[in-house]
Nucleic acid binder design. Structure first.
Lengths: 140, 140
DNA sequence: TTTGACTCTGCACTATGGTGCAGGGTGGAG
DNA sequence: CTCCACCCTGCACCATAGTGCAGAGTCAAA
């Protein structure tokens, strides 16, 4: 079934996965992609399933996982001693992380919109409640 | 009123503002703090109001402004041709920015929690719906 | 055979917000 | 006068996720 014409060069892999060529090499250096076989010339020969792998990486990134975390997820999926529960643990940690960031951003938004309501919208900047509230004699 | 004993060394400024000494020098290089007067020895002599300035910077950072944006805010407050409306514009842009980030994080959380509900919590990782959904044959 | 597109390596650089260090000079108290 | 804490400059480095480039080699079609 699989023959030599199945393998992909970096460029082909990059194109099919929708990323740049340097990104592929970067992932390889980071251990997110296995070191591929090489031709005599040194050209990389990627197996076709590397396309899935790269898309997995991007998909996980979209869900908020860093490359380090994606790597952990990948080694989880490689390790027969690990179970679904381990994966779920990572997901739960990520949700907690996201919720922390959400709370922080919401606090920022609350303060900023409150300041904007207080701002007359004209007048000199010295009288601007936004700037004044950022001054710290206003503490907390 | 103000005499020589009013001025602050970097270390004193850093301590009063609650930041490290290199941070002060970094802000100075970035133009967030004016270049202070120097003693004959080269020691910086900061005016006491620089403490307020540094705290302003940290406060604005807490509200989600980058140092570049803090600098813009500061030059707005220096410029007599600028008004409160200009400041409010920056705040509104930042709120929009924060809302974009909130939406993105909420999407991530939604997907992750949905995946976690589908996950049995045991069994091999190959069968894990979390990992499987990150595989891209699952497209969009 | 030639040409153009592709690939190789390694290194430097982007942005962000600092931190750390080496190798000097300075300030004030004891 | 000595000592230690502080200050000076400039440079390199941390993490993150790549991007860009030089200089060389390769592949395949025309």
């Amino acid at each position: 079934m699989s023959n030599a014409s199945d393998v992909l060069t970096v460029g082909q892999l990059a194109k099919r996965a929708g990323v740049g060529v340097p990104t592929i090499r970067f992932y390889e250096r980071r251990g997110l992609l296995p070191s591929p076989a090489r031709r005599a010339s040194g050209y990389r020969q990627f197996a076709p399933d590397c396309v899935q792998r790269v898309r997995f990486i991007r998909h996980a990134q979209e869900l908020g996982f860093s490359l380090r975390e994606v790597q952990e997820l990948l080694s989880l999926s490689m390790d027969p001693h690990k179970s679904c529960a381990d994966v779920r643990e990572r997901a739960a940690a990520k949700v907690a992380d996201i919720e922390g960031r959400l709370a922080s951003l919401k606090r920022m938004r609350t303060v900023l919109t409150r300041l904007m309501k207080r701002c007359p919208g004209d007048g000199p900047t010295e009288a601007c409640p936004i700037l004044m509230t950022m001054e710290p004699e206003h503490e907390r």
